[in-house]
Nucleic acid binder design. Structure first.
Lengths: 91, 91
DNA sequence: CATACCCGTGATACTAATACCGGTATAAGA
DNA sequence: TCTTATACCGGTATTAGTATCACGGGTATG
């Protein structure tokens, strides 16, 4: 195996990231946010739905900028749900 | 064309990111930092040398955590050298 | 009711990221 | 000198991210 397939945990993390982005998008439309971030709407949809669990760094950066959220917040919320970081989803 | 090839500007941005990571690594070895971040040494080398200009978000996150630098700093330094952020490279 | 527009979705195509392998160069140490 | 460790480089294999194409659902407007 040359490229390790994504583990279920990594996919879970991707879903968490997508959920955070979708929540941050609020009532804005996908096309609007995608255009503001400079990515295609389909790409944003895949990331939000978790079908692209490990998007590129600059893609996430652009989305975070377009959505007005911090990268630290995203990384911390997706990192590890060991304790009870589900508060990040509700907030 | 279904997937836009990386533009020279994106590659430049990747080189900047790599330079920042290498600088943050300091005198640590590649294998040590790579192991701490959970990525292979070859991947870290490719990112540092700019041969992987758009690494995955969580890869950069893990490296930033292992190196003790902030994602915001990385994103800001790589975003756009419009004004004079070359100081980040020289410092 | 038909048409058009916007949003979201699935399928497809193609490039890039990641990892493993072997080889090379340089510097430190036995 | 020889070994070892580190970094660099090329190639290869496989998965995954991203973009385009084509489709369905809803809402408004004619």
């Amino acid at each position: 195996m040359v490229r390790t397939p994504l583990t279920p945990e990594e996919r879970r993390r991707g879903e968490r990231l997508g959920a955070l982005l979708r929540e941050a998008r609020g009532d804005r439309s996908m096309v609007e946010v995608a255009a503001a971030a400079g990515v295609s709407a389909e790409t944003l949809r895949k990331i939000e739905t978790g079908r692209a669990p490990t998007p590129a760094f600059f893609t996430v950066t652009a989305l975070a900028t377009a959505l007005g959220i911090s990268l630290e917040h995203l990384a911390a919320a997706c990192a590890e749900p060991t304790t009870e970081d589900d508060q990040a989803l509700t907030a």
